[in-house]
Amino acid sequence: MGTSLLLQLVINGLIVGTLYGVVAMCFVLIYKSTQVVNFAQGEFLLIGAWTCWWLVTSMALPFYVAFPLTFVFMMVFGIALQMIVLRPLIGEPVISVIMVTIGLSIFFQAVIKSIFGVWAQPFPEIFPVKSVDVFGLAVQPAYLMSLVVSLVIMVAFAWFFKYSRMGLAMRATAFNQQVAQSLGISVKNVFATAWAISAMVSALAGVVVGMVNGVSSALSFFGIKVFPAVIVGGLDSIVGAIIGGLIIGLLENLAEYADGQYLHVGNLYTVAPFYVLVIILMIKPYGLFGTKTIERV
């Protein structure tokens, strides 16, 4: 029984890990291009999932209409957020920027709770619920789909940053804002695009998780789990974010296994990633793939 459970948990960990990876990637995208640590990343998932849920249930739109509409909404939302709230804070100290995103996160969470309530709402069925057999293990099709979607997003990100004009502009901005500006890149547009993409992709992740677990405020916990992932991978590395996400996803499930089988301390599932975070910060503060900053006076 032990091994098959372990295998199941490893598969679960990898699938959840890819989702963490996707959210972490969105987080890193914002951090890299705008130097803002977004504590409201989890709320992006929340807002995206609830918007899609509302469009599908209350507006009775078919999923293939509701989903693009959610995307459009999240794009507008991301750009508006950047323009109204974050732009006045350019050049302010780190604490202000952190606190503004924390403030936003509290605000959105409260607003969402007051509109939609605190109970989890199931998504109407879009994919068959019957679990699929993979190597003799039962895996939900929505999970499989999420795996596929995550991989597609990762490939799309890789293409975007390597070949598209906007992606190159973003990398240039991340490297040095002043130089990018003097080369004719509109830094303002780059910032807005970064937030828009991040909001859209997070919403996608939110919808995927919502399909499996139901839509609820618990989704915003993804935004908190993102921190161990990005610290393990390095705050400014997109590849690191994906790998960090996978590591944290696996670790969570293995911690649960160890907890259930041997240790019996309970709750290790949620706390283990934070212990890892502190340890990583102590021994390798820039993560596995992050760039070390050298300070000169």
Binding site: V85, P88, L89, E92, S96, M99, V100, I102, G103, L104, S105, I106, F107, F108, Q109, A110, V111, K113, S114
Partner: peptide, 17 residues
């Protein structure tokens, strides 16, 4: 209860801006 919570977040954001 949620309005109170939202007010805290909003106050922080508005003060910072």
């Amino acid at each position: 209860a949620y309005i109170k919570e939202a007010a805290i977040g909003l106050a922080i954001v508005l003060f910072l801006i």
